[in-house]
């Protein structure tokens, strides 16, 4: 899955591709707020139109995104059922022990699943039109206030860049560790919840050791290539803001405000 995340950028020259990474992140967080606030049919319809419009403008087919989200259907079913049976016992249609099938549970399950689906939709559009470098560059700008705590923007940028490139590597490492444990008799596909949970534990310590070992070697390689923290302060040129950046932020803000009113 690590490679899957990193391989989702689709090269293009749409208006989304031209926007700054920081703008797209700001818009994403505004839309994320809108998703959190949405709980009506009209609100979800507005979100759907926003997602469809964004996908068309970005040159990414909703169908492709839909397929990748559909792979998580088991997860959606699980959270829907958990809300359906555990959310509320008021005016339940059916009750047994701790399980209560109620209208409020049905509504809550539907709302939660819809929110997660839309969040994933917008997330896919973001990473489909933003290279890892643009993403970390955008995050670097948004995290620049951390400079008051002694971490420069240059260092933040480096840390985020390295973090992103570690993801597929550590993901592969975790997978190899799992397979090595399976070869030694560990079971990861137990039928019971606690069996599966227990089986995840022998992966955790080796994954940490592998991650820290790699970090140790990379730190040496970076020092060998002249990296110094005190020189990591970035020389930032003039930040140019285009009309499409402003428009995107305004539109995202409008969607967010609409959810408050709907």
């Amino acid at each position: 899955m690590g490679n899957d995340i990193m391989g989702q950028y689709i090269a293009g020259d749409s208006v989304f591709h031209k926007m700054r990474g920081s703008t797209k992140l700001i818009c994403f967080f505004l839309i994320l707020t809108a998703v959190i606030l949405t709980d009506s049919a009209a609100g979800f319809f507005l979100l759907f139109m926003t997602a469809a419009g964004s996908a068309i403008l970005a040159g990414i087919g909703l169908r492709n995104i839909g397929k990748s989200i559909a792979r998580l259907k088991l997860f959606f079913i699980t959270i829907f059922l958990m809300n359906l049976f555990f959310f509320s016992s008021e005016q339940a249609w059916w009750s047994f022990w701790i399980f209560h099938l109620s209208p409020a549970g049905l509504e809550q399950g539907t709302v939660v699943v819809m929110r997660v689906v839309f969040l994933l939709l917008f997330s896919r559009i973001l990473i489909g039109t933003t290279t890892p470098a643009e993403l970390t560059g955008g995050l670097e700008i948004l995290l620049s206030p951390l400079g008051v705590f002694g971490i420069s923007t240059g260092e933040t940028a480096m840390i985020l860049s390295v973090a992103v490139q570690f993801i597929p590597i550590l993901s592969k490492e975790a997978d190899q560790i799992r397979k090595a444990q399976i070869a030694r008799g560990a079971e990861f596909e137990g039928r019971h919840f606690w069996e599966r949970a227990k089986s995840a534990l022998p992966v955790v310590i080796p994954v940490f050791l592998a991650a820290f070992r790699r970090a140790d070697e990379l730190a040496l390689a970076m020092e060998a290539r002249g990296y110094r923290k005190e020189k990591a302060q970035r020389k930032r040129g003039r930040i140019s803001i285009h009309l499409c950046d402003v428009q995107a932020i305004v539109l995202s803000g409008a969607v967010c405000m609409s959810q408050i009113l709907l």
Binding site: M6, P132, A133, E217, A224, Y227, K231
Partner: peptide, 26 residues
Amino acid sequence: GMVFQNPENQFVSLIVEEDLAFGLKN
């Protein structure tokens, strides 16, 4: 210059040119 044993543990970026630019910027 030093080339280490595991190439994956020497990269600071996902893209070739960004990784090569790292030392030059330092």
